[in-house]
Amino acid sequence: MSHPALPNLTERLRELIALNSISAVIPEYDESNLPVIHLLAEWFSALGFRTEVVPVADFPGKANLIATLGQGDGGLVLSGHTDTVPCNPERWQSDPFTLTERDGRFYGLGTCDMKGFFSLVIEAVSHYLDQDFKQPLIVLATADEESSMCGARALAEQGALKGRYAVVGEPTSLRPIRMHKGIMMESIRLIGRAGHSSDPALGINAMDAMIPVMQELQALRLDLSQRYQNAHFAVQSPTLNLGCIHGGDNPNRICGSCELAFDLRTLPGMSNDDLRDEIRRRINPIAEQNRVSLEYEALFPGVDSFATEASSPLVQAAERLTGVSSEAVNYATEAPFLQKLGMETIVLGPGSIDQAHQPDEFLAADQIDPCVHILRQLIEDFCLAPARD
């Protein structure tokens, strides 16, 4: 059932999809998420939630929403991001910003990743507005998950969000995810000295120096695969991908500068900061031996890996309600930031990750009722029932 003050589930989804909230590292594609945040705040306020719009420092036009029903610490957090990735409208069969229903699917940018989750949360909680919430229900809507993760990062730094259990509603086809890999994207730049290629003594070739750096990273990749294994993942070891390389400007010039960018996917129990320290220790001597200067930087702050114990009451409840065992995935979410706030966390939501970031993104209609049922049961277990010891 829907609250009479609000549009119905489909209309809510339609209004959310119509608001362009693309986040991107390229400024000309980046949009504010404030229209989505204010619309959600209006809806949750109408349901009786206390709503707080929290601007994200140093990110103009970006904000988080914290909507709370009930009092006290503990309780359940239902979390999602309000932004979408950029899209190519010419590759879509219909307008990405117009909700289109056909063949049992709702098409639109953000339907499954992941504005649709908020519409389903409202559908679930509307059933309990006259109930006594013994522990609070907190709905969290974040900024820029698809680019900087600045919204969740800011919340983790502020430490103000209270809750004992958290569900991140990313599209998992309603399968509970209790662990995922972390991600680092790093850059190594070597600076030598350009000169005429006819005489190597006239310069210092940065590209020549990059070769042993790449070999050292390949050796690190092998070392990490031997040191760390986790059988829960389809790819059971950490991965290190040498993604792109740029250097020099002409065949007859000694390469004066060369830059390599790579990504590293970490397993639970690994530290991104420790890995950065290890990489520096391994490549600094190479730069010195080759007489090049070294600039090493993270291309973005990175996302830590995350894992919640299989014995967690939230994991066990999700497995019981979905009828499937919890899993591990290779992609990253905002879950580690909620975990840093002290919450037992899982990732569980409607729609398939296969549709995310793709033309003709859709949310299958047959995911909606099962998702609402799961959310209602979680609300009953973690908000309406007495607090667990």
Rank of each mutant, 00 (worst) to 15 (best):
S2L: 13
G48P: 01
P359F: 07
M270T: 08
P336Q: 06
L217M: 11
G48L: 07
A365T: 09
G75N: 06
S2H: 13
K162I: 01
I379Q: 06
E146S: 09
K134L: 14
D113Q: 10
I346C: 02
T51A: 10
L220S: 11
G110F: 10
G195N: 07
A298P: 07
I26W: 12
T308P: 05
A219H: 08
I66H: 08
P136W: 03
N205S: 04
L267G: 11
F133H: 07
R153M: 08
I183K: 13
V372I: 15
E309P: 05
A156Q: 10
I191K: 15
R12E: 00
E28L: 05
L267A: 09
Q218C: 13
I204H: 02
V324I: 08
I17H: 10
G116R: 07
E186M: 14
P350F: 06
A298L: 08
P251E: 03
L69C: 06
V303E: 04
S312R: 08
V53S: 05
I26L: 14
D144H: 03
E216P: 01
D83F: 08
L321R: 10
L9V: 10
Y107A: 11
Q367W: 13
L190V: 02
K134R: 15
A231D: 15
R276T: 07
G72C: 06
P350C: 05
E42Y: 01
S147K: 03
V315G: 12
P238W: 04
A219N: 14
E259D: 02
G195C: 02
C258P: 04
L375Y: 14
C244M: 14
V303Q: 08
V213C: 02
A332Y: 15
S2W: 06
Q93Y: 01
T98G: 01
G48K: 10
I283K: 11
R105A: 10
E344Y: 02
A5K: 14
D273F: 01
G163E: 07
D30F: 03
F117Y: 15
L224R: 01
L6W: 08
T266N: 00
T84F: 09
D144E: 13
C255D: 04
C112R: 08
L294E: 12
R282Q: 13
A209V: 12
D223V: 05
V85L: 07
G195V: 03
L378S: 12
P89N: 10
F262L: 13
S32H: 04
A57K: 14
F49A: 09
V235E: 13
K134C: 09
Y128Q: 04
A206E: 06
G159R: 14
E186F: 02
A57S: 12
G116W: 10
R227T: 10
G247V: 08
K62C: 00
R193S: 00
F382C: 05
L260I: 05
K162E: 00
I138G: 00
V168T: 13
M1V: 06
F49I: 00
L299H: 00
A154D: 06
L242Y: 01
A46W: 00
E259I: 00
D73T: 11
T172C: 05
